[in-house]
Design a binder for these strands. Structure first.
Lengths: 205, 205
DNA sequence: TCCGAGGCAGACCGGTCTGTACGCCTCGGT
DNA sequence: ACCGAGGCGTACAGACCGGTCTGCCTCGGA
């Protein structure tokens, strides 16, 4: 019995930070919590250090700047959210590559209904900082990694043109996230239906 | 021969502000230009007043706060972008309701390729401020108006369940915008293909 | 026992933020 | 001829920003 095991997979799995209580871990854990919920510009360094119980000097000893911490946050988000929460969970729920692909939107459905649903940090940071900013570029890179997971599943499933398939699939993922942010709790179902049609049209007929 | 008639429909049509040179118009025109490109928090009041050649007292005489100006900007964006640039242009390009629906993604294709492509301000503001913020709620409202235009076209086309159709369609619109922001210039084509399948499945068979 | 690395607390810097206030000027109506 | 509305420029308040720096304390290894 650890923290946040009440509803679905935990956002911050104990395995990632288990037992560690070093300042750098507290900073990262706090950054994950605050950045994912309120964005980058919405969280200041002073709040970060006070919330993580760390002095300012310690903060800047581990991270040369706030942007450096944001980069570390994005990488942590890739591990915790993309890999552990979405990809791994979808793979667990499906038995075949196609089922695993479609299960992504089942996982989305559960995720959308969490009261602490915070949308996709990569999209948030990309739009907040702009595509030209280093943090925006990093976000684009992590978004492409998500597409890579989809493409790998598409290849396993033997679908046609897996790269283009993944790009179309990703449109459904991102669009449904925005719709969920607007309050459409059924956005995952709508996207999943369109995803089924996409699979049909990419099957080697 | 007016301004920005070089490539496609103008972002700020002369008709909207034609001839008017009042301070409030200059403020709004500047706000449109800056907010749509750099977001809300990325533009300060000092820059707004200096760029529009207006004193600070004049600014606060017309808009009681920066948020009030943002609300006015969102409404202007609804008129200039949603109505004049997207809906009207798509209707102009298509002869039937279904063609007009699909033409939305043709307009998107042209829009995505502009070097001053700035994504969707409603999505930007929603993610920047959060769904609970008044500006976020206003953005959700303007996004629902976009869905209303789609739903109206779906009803004209006699499609099944036009409201759900519009929600799915909107997922494709928003997802393709994010993909275009990432740099995928063909996102409009991918979304349009999925949109065709969506129409097929909503036709009264 | 000592000593240095690392952590905590907080003052401080220059800059930026939204918003207020004050002084001066230029109009247009009476 | 006058007078007030409205516009311009600017100084300023109060808060917050990212980032630097100093001082004190604790702990672990030689």
């Amino acid at each position: 019995m650890t923290v946040n095991d009440a509803e679905g997979p935990p956002l911050l799995p104990a395995t990632a930070m288990a037992g560690r209580d070093e300042p750098v871990d507290r900073i990262l854990a706090t950054a994950y919590e605050l950045f994912s919920r309120r964005g980058i510009r919405g969280v200041g360094v002073n709040e970060l250090i006070s919330s993580s119980g760390v002095s300012k000097a310690t903060f800047y000893r581990h991270f040369p700047s706030k942007d450096a911490l944001v980069l570390a946050f994005l990488e942590l988000r890739d591990q915790v959210w993309t890999v552990d929460l979405i990809v791994a969970e979808a793979s667990r729920r499906g038995n075949t590559p196609e089922e695993r692909l479609l299960a992504v939107f089942d996982v989305f459905g559960d995720w959308f209904q969490r009261e602490d649903f915070e949308a996709c940090s990569f999209i948030n940071v990309l739009l907040e900082m702009g595509a030209g900013h280093p943090l925006g570029k990093a976000s684009i890179d992590y978004l492409s990694r998500i597409r890579g997971h989809i493409q790998a599943l598409a290849e396993e499933a033997g679908l046609d043109r897996p790269e283009e398939f993944a790009r179309s699939w990703h449109i459904l993922m991102k669009g449904s996230i925005i719709s969920a942010t607007e309050g459409d709790a059924l956005a995952s179902k709508r996207a999943q239906q369109m995803a089924r049609w996409l699979i049909e049209h990419h099957r080697g007929l």
